[in-house]
């Protein structure tokens, strides 16, 4: 019973991602994402301070579990994210094209995202070996230093490279055992929400990554001064905002990372140093008993 009538497309509701759930913003507000021609693409949640605070609660609750997962397991989960993204490539390419990319650009960006996730998947159980030390102290102690995740990270994703920037930011944060709240590109928010769906279907525990949409200028002060956030990440060159983030971050001595000079499309957009940016070094001491004075002679 073929019909000549065109089938009516089912439009997607773009929601946010908090604690493994897809709520709408509690504020009930929205904004319209458009392309360059000014065509409406979707109604997107205009998140509020309360949404951010809910996301911080989710990220903090998830931190203990995620940071104590086996590094190997984190690696597998990052690999799984890449697998899920590979399977849904077409959807991301469509969305990027809708948001003004050419097909070639869109395909490149999605491929790069998948490869970057694989790259960081591999680092999950290796960067610790590279950046740990056993320290030859002058007293009778065994002493070693290892990297440990900083904690809850509040990151503002780059406005351009709306998918690649987001993935390049999130991957090293979670590879290192942190949890995060990420504000998607304001002008190109579609892929971020769809990426949340990928995360949600890839064994990543709820709350490890939380994705909000909205206005940078409205949310950035809360990202920088929340007392239960350990680090703030910002990717634009806007000096006034950089200064404000640094000032507000002093409230609880947050680590502040500015990635305004990073080229995400470049090979320099990935390295274990991005993981180390959000690691603390912990040093552990224990005495060595040396009662009889026996030496290891053979």
């Amino acid at each position: 019973m073929a019909t000549t009538e065109k089938r009516l497309e089912v439009l997607k509701t773009y929601k946010i991602y908090i604690g493994g759930q897809f709520p709408r913003t509690e504020s009930g507000r929205y904004y319209i994402a458009t392309n360059k021609k000014g065509e409406n693409l979707a109604n997107v949640c205009l998140c509020s301070r309360k949404d951010f605070r809910d996301a911080v609660v989710a990220a903090r609750s998830a931190f203990g579990g995620w940071s104590s997962r086996a590094a190997f397991n984190r690696g597998q989960i990052l690999y799984r994210i890449a697998e899920m993204l590979e399977g849904r490539k077409a959807q991301f390419i469509d969305e990027l094209i809708k948001q003004d990319s050419t097909r070639v650009q869109a395909e490149n960006e999605v491929n790069l995202c998948i490869d970057r996730l694989i790259y960081y998947s591999g680092w999950c159980d290796k960067f610790q070996q590279l950046f740990s030390t056993v320290n030859p102290v002058a007293s009778s102690h065994f002493n070693f230093s290892v990297p440990e995740p900083t904690g809850v990270v509040a990151a503002i994703a780059p406005q351009n490279d709306s998918l690649l920037g987001l993935v390049s930011l999130i991957a090293p944060i979670i590879a290192g055992g942190n949890t995060c709240i990420v504000l998607a590109s304001n002008t190109k928010p579609l892929c971020a929400v769809t990426f949340a769906e990928v995360l949600n279907s890839s064994d990543l525990p709820g709350g490890v990554v939380n994705i909000l949409t909205g206005k940078v200028s409205e949310l950035v002060p809360w990202f920088a001064d929340h007392m239960d956030v350990n680090a703030t990440v910002y990717c634009e060159a806007d000096e006034a905002t950089q200064k404000m983030i640094k000032e507000k971050s002093a409230l609880n001595v947050k680590r502040v990372l500015l990635y305004d000079k990073t080229k995400w499309t470049d090979a320099s957009g990935q390295s274990p140093y991005f993981i180390m940016d959000l690691q603390e070094i912990k040093t552990t001491w224990h005495p060595i008993e040396n009662i009889g004075g026996a030496k290891a002679g053979y």
Partner: peptide, 20 residues
């Protein structure tokens, strides 16, 4: 940043020191 097990307040030039 520094955890001492069965000892305390030990320092050494080779041993990193600093806080979370």
């Amino acid at each position: 940043g520094v955890v001492w097990a069965n000892t305390f307040n030990k320092f050494d030039p080779t041993s990193p020191f600093g806080g979370y």
